[in-house]
Simulated assay, not measured.
Amino acid sequence: MTEKTCQQRYVALVNMVFDQEGDLANHFLELFPTPAVFRNMTMEEQDAFLGYDRKRLKPVLAAIELGNLILTCPHDILGHAYSSNEVGQFLMDEMAGQMQESVEVLCTDVHNEIIARRCLFKGGQAECMLYPDQIFRYVLHWNSFGLIMVHNHPSGDPEPSRQDLSFMRRLERGCQLLGLHLLDCLVIGSQDYYSWRESQEAHAAFNDQIAN
């Protein structure tokens, strides 16, 4: 947003807040002509602002404070993603035995705390159509550091199909381009789960043993 557009929107919003009370809008804009001036308001300026008509202006300041609180408050923490085993076990309790294949996406912060999760897709008993762009839109909306994609196999067998593995690789490439961290892709079965991350680590360890 350009400086000019920002200023125009600021003035329009101020007039919208005060609606038909033009004198209050003018008083506000005289004291705080730009968003930056308002953001750096001193206590003396606040008193001068309220002194014009405290009864009508106090709710406005309260609404602005509420907006600031909403913007700056931390995310709700829905759980932890400290290990694939931890996430796999608690999702097995929820998803094992479901008759429809579904895909859940978990968003994490830099500390691997789960800040959002949603079931983005539901399919039939055999397949579920996946769209990476919708996954990325959801993850970026939450300003996430990382993500975990989870889907179940109604058959009970957690072994990923070729299509599953292909999609995981596409998701990994997309995350690399967007600067996101793909923490894991999990497949939930009836008695066990498959972890793409654990499988990669096991494969790397096996190759190291052969090399040594």
Score class of each variant (00 low, 15 high):
Leu140Asp: 10
Val187Met: 14
Phe121Gly: 07
Gln125Ile: 06
Met41Gly: 04
Cys119Gln: 14
Asn85Ala: 08
Asn212Ile: 01
Lys55Met: 02
Leu57Ala: 01
Gly123His: 08
Asn143Leu: 05
Pro160Gln: 02
Val60Trp: 04
Phe90Glu: 12
Asp184Ser: 09
His203Glu: 13
His111Ala: 13
Ile64Met: 14
Asp76Thr: 09
Met168Asn: 12
Pro59Leu: 06
Arg137Tyr: 07
Arg56Thr: 02
Met1Lys: 08
Asn26Pro: 00
Ala12Asp: 14
Glu159Gly: 03
Lys58Glu: 15
Val11Thr: 13
Phe121Asn: 09
Val105Glu: 02
Leu130Glu: 12
Ile148Gln: 10
Lys55Phe: 00
Gly51Pro: 01
Asp109Gln: 05
Pro154Thr: 07
Lys55Asp: 02
Ala116Gly: 12
Met95His: 05
Gly123Arg: 08
Arg162Phe: 10
Phe136His: 13
Glu30Ser: 10
Asp109Glu: 07
Cys119Asp: 07
Leu50Met: 08
Met41Thr: 03
Val87Pro: 02
Ser195Asp: 09
Ser199Cys: 12
His141Leu: 10
Met99Asn: 13
Glu65Pro: 00
Leu78His: 09
Arg56Ala: 13
Cys185Ala: 15
Ile148Ala: 10
Cys175Gln: 06
Gly123Met: 03
Gly22Trp: 02
Gln134Asn: 14
Ala126Leu: 12
Phe206Gly: 01
Pro132Asp: 06
Phe28Thr: 04
Ala204Ser: 08
Asp53Gln: 13
Leu182Phe: 01
Gly88Leu: 02
Glu127Leu: 05
Ala204Arg: 11
Ile115His: 03
